[in-house]
């Protein structure tokens, strides 16, 4: 009997370790996107400001994925011969949105307003890393609660550690 309990305990601990290993080290931090979009070219080489495309970041809780019309605004003229741009154009011609894969995904019970952070002068880099050097976007922050709180504590955000400041 005693042995059985021991087996269960060992099995249980191993199970948790297995789960954690998968969660931490086997997540796809830089998923393949439908279009091989490079932030390095846009934000890095060409120095386009973040909010030129992510237009809602200062006004809303979401920063906004650039709409296809905005992509085409430039790419009707620029680099129209590139196969990736032709992919964008084909979405535009089909009147279909581009199904980007979400990299920074927060659970439903979190209220995260981009607006408050942008207006408080938090640089996009703080959470999203040096996007300007990424050819394919890669998740650089864990997005776990401790990570949020460490920043809130450091910056002495008013009520920044209250549950209902960020949970809903």
């Amino acid at each position: 009997m005693k042995k059985l309990i021991l087996y269960a305990v060992v099995g249980g601990i191993a199970f948790v370790i297995g789960y954690f290993v998968n969660d931490q080290f086997f997540s796809d931090r830089a998923p393949v996107q439908p279009i091989n979009f490079s932030h390095k070219i846009h934000a890095g080489d060409n120095q386009i400001p973040c909010q030129y495309c992510h237009i809602y970041a200062e006004r809303s809780r979401v920063s906004g994925v650039p709409n296809v019309k905005r992509c085409m605004g430039c790419h009707q003229i620029i680099k129209t011969d590139s196969p990736e741009i032709q992919k964008v154009a084909s979405y535009w011609d089909k009147k279909e949105p581009i199904p980007w894969v979400k990299v920074y995904n927060l659970p439903d019970h979190v209220y995260f307003p981009h607006k408050r952070h942008v207006r408080a002068g938090v640089d996009c880099k703080n959470c999203h890393g040096d996007v300007a050097s990424m050819a394919r976007i890669e998740k650089v922050s864990s997005l776990q609660m401790g990570w949020c709180l460490s920043c809130h504590t450091k910056r002495e955000v008013k009520n920044g550690r209250d549950c209902w400041t960020c949970h809903k």
Binding site: A14, G18, V21, V65, K69, P97, I98, V101, N105
Partner: peptide, 25 residues
């Protein structure tokens, strides 16, 4: 145990959520 945990972690992971933009806002 570790294998089962790994597999469960794998299958219970939400599928890559999509980020669908507006065509014309």
């Amino acid at each position: 145990g570790a294998g089962a945990g790994f597999v469960l972690g794998k299958v219970s992971k939400p599928p890559g959520a999509k980020l669908i933009p507006y065509l014309i806002p």
